[in-house]
Design a protein around this nucleic acid. Structure first.
Lengths: 337, 337
DNA sequence: CAGGATTGCGCAAGCGTTTTAGTAACCGGC
DNA sequence: GCCGGTTACTAAAACGCTTGCGCAATCCTG
């Protein structure tokens, strides 16, 4: 910066003000300074400027998974709005209990970011408190953060209910559900709320939920496949299943195909998320606006970082049933209803 | 840091050395300092320390896509090794020509990272030079960087050849290929090399490549579906197709299913990548070790950043044919060969 | 046209580290 | 008991910015 100042014949303070568009610099001079900076290929040192301003110019994103569709999608959206606002995105991937504990123990974000967005990670009270004590804004996306932290998400319970009502409307009475085991409490909250929605909708329709009709398996196609196997081995298997996520439903479909069970004639399947695989496999599913959640989360954080106290800090987005080819009346009448 | 120093009754210089494990501090004193720092919940300011050392403690990752399987996978692996080495990961997502140009124009990484890894982005000469002038180590993963920059990747040409040989061995003679259009030159290099491998293997086997049998379509299932449609509308359609990527092959399968073309009896399909969808759809494909590429890229960058001049800076990993259910002899004889 | 505002800029004090040079204390060896 | 050599630490100079304060010069206003 001193070089630029010297080249133009002004003080470095003036260069600083000119470069950041602050008032107090005449237009003509500002232009000369900008040109000189350009010529000298000069950019301000974030470290030096951060040292005095106390701001880092970057925001952190905490994700439990990078490669899963939901998380990647939200991450991309968050990146889009924050990057657009001039922030750098620093990524913290905590997969597994050990990494997670270490993150909350050492809090590597300290002094490294101006804000934090947590993507689809169910936090414990303690963890939420740790983040709160961080002294920087925190927002959640697709989570449920304890302690009233700002967040954006969907109504998981209502979404699950939509699946149930759809199946019940088709005439199904024995409806099973596939949940995911979650040893590390990553999406505990989501899973619990979807189950609650399932149960309450079943209750509303006067349908009974057999204890054995709710099975849990690890996340992913293999888990879903296994869970479906369990359901098929019941004395009286359900005629329809609601899977907590598309990635799981996909495995269920595999088991059904391999078992020669016709979908949807002999078994209807509903997923959740409306991810690309759902479309690929023509899976009926409960859709959510993933990208939108990321955008909103980004904006919420932006507002918080820039101290713009705009309205709601807890946004809830809608879900919609996307009917495709994996659901029909039980028994397979071709024209439902 | 001054607080810690004062609490222990030493100078801040000593605290600095103690905290970083440098010699010149007695063990007893070091322990007291560490304890005091702990109690005061103190962590060094990266900005201040970066200001004097000139190092940022973070590395940048440049990706054209976040949500695609390959990129997410590599990103996760890169994150794993770099994070393990104490670096923060800052993410630059450049999707689209505008973002890309802006990135290479303004080079926001300048002064913000100690190194850069470029994931699966074909760079122009000019872009590569820009990065080279960055004054920080750059490594590529799944790309082909001009100018001899260090990188990890696979032999795309050989991979494509494996697909051809597999099909030829099964007795196919009319083999088509589905490429992806790439207006923005994102994976140009990869696409070109796979085509080259396809052509040369076809030549080796004495098979002719009809010009119309190589079609291009946008990336993704829809593109693949369209391309397959084109192939099916030829006067003499191929009996097998090699798709540049699983994500594209998947669309081809959809078209085939909808067209009532039996796979593999009437049409064999081979993908590339061995992504989860390939397994899901029982797609024969050319597998590559994606995670491994990320790990290697991370280590290459680490070596470069830490000035450890270890051996090869251009690593080429192997590919392997994964035979599944979408390939068989033409005509569908159940027992190939 | 005198007086107070306003504008445009330089000066210099920090911001919180690292690091070099320097100093005091101790240690063994003759 | 004096002397080179360690060892353990302090003092202070950077690092490259931002920003409050001060000071001319220029601008209005009555």
């Amino acid at each position: 910066m001193a070089d630029v100042a010297h080249a133009v014949g002004v003080s470095s303070g003036t260069v600083s003000r000119a470069l950041r568009g602050l008032p107090g610099v005449s237009d003509a001079l500002r232009r000369r300074i900008l040109r000189a900076a350009e010529n000298l290929d000069y950019v301000v040192s974030p470290a030096a400027s951060g040292l005095v301003t106390g701001r880092t110019g970057s925001v952190a994103v905490l994700v439990p998974f990078i490669a899963r569709w939901f998380h990647a999608q939200v991450l991309a959206a968050v990146h889009e709005v924050l990057r657009g606002a001039g922030f750098e995105i620093v990524l913290y991937h905590v997969e597994g209990t050990a990494e997670r504990r270490e993150f909350f123990e050492t809090l590597p974000v300290r002094r490294r970011a101006d804000g934090l967005v947590v993507i689809a990670l169910s936090l414990t009270e303690r963890e939420a408190r740790r983040l709160d004590g961080l002294g920087m804004p925190v927002v959640g996306a697709g989570t449920c953060l304890p302690g009233g932290l700002p967040e954006v998400g969907i109504d998981d319970s209502e979404g699950a209910a939509k699946a149930v009502h759809h199946l019940a409307n088709l005439g199904h009475e024995r409806i099973g559900m596939i949940r995911t085991t979650d040893d590390e409490g990553v999406h505990q909250g989501v899973s619990r709320r979807r189950l609650a929605g399932f149960r309450s909708a079943m209750g509303e329709r006067g349908l009974e939920v057999a204890p054995a009709a709710v099975v849990s398996a690890p996340w992913g196609a293999d888990g879903g496949a296994r869970a479906m196997g369990e359901l098929l081995s019941l004395r009286e298997p359900p005629t329809a299943v609601f899977a907590e996520a598309d990635d799981v439903a996909v495995g269920a479909l595999r088991t059904l195909r391999r078992s020669g069970v016709d979908v949807p004639a002999d078994m209807s399947v509903v997923g959740f998320d409306d991810s690309p695989v759902a479309e690929l496999l023509d899976l009926t599913t409960v859709g959510q606006s993933v990208r939108e959640q990321g955008l909103v989360a980004g904006r919420l954080l932006l507002d918080a970082v820039q101290q713009v106290g705009t309205g709601d800090s807890r946004v809830r987005l809608g879900t919609r049933l996307v009917t495709r080819g994996t659901t029909s009346r039980p028994g397979g009448a071709s024209h439902p209803r």
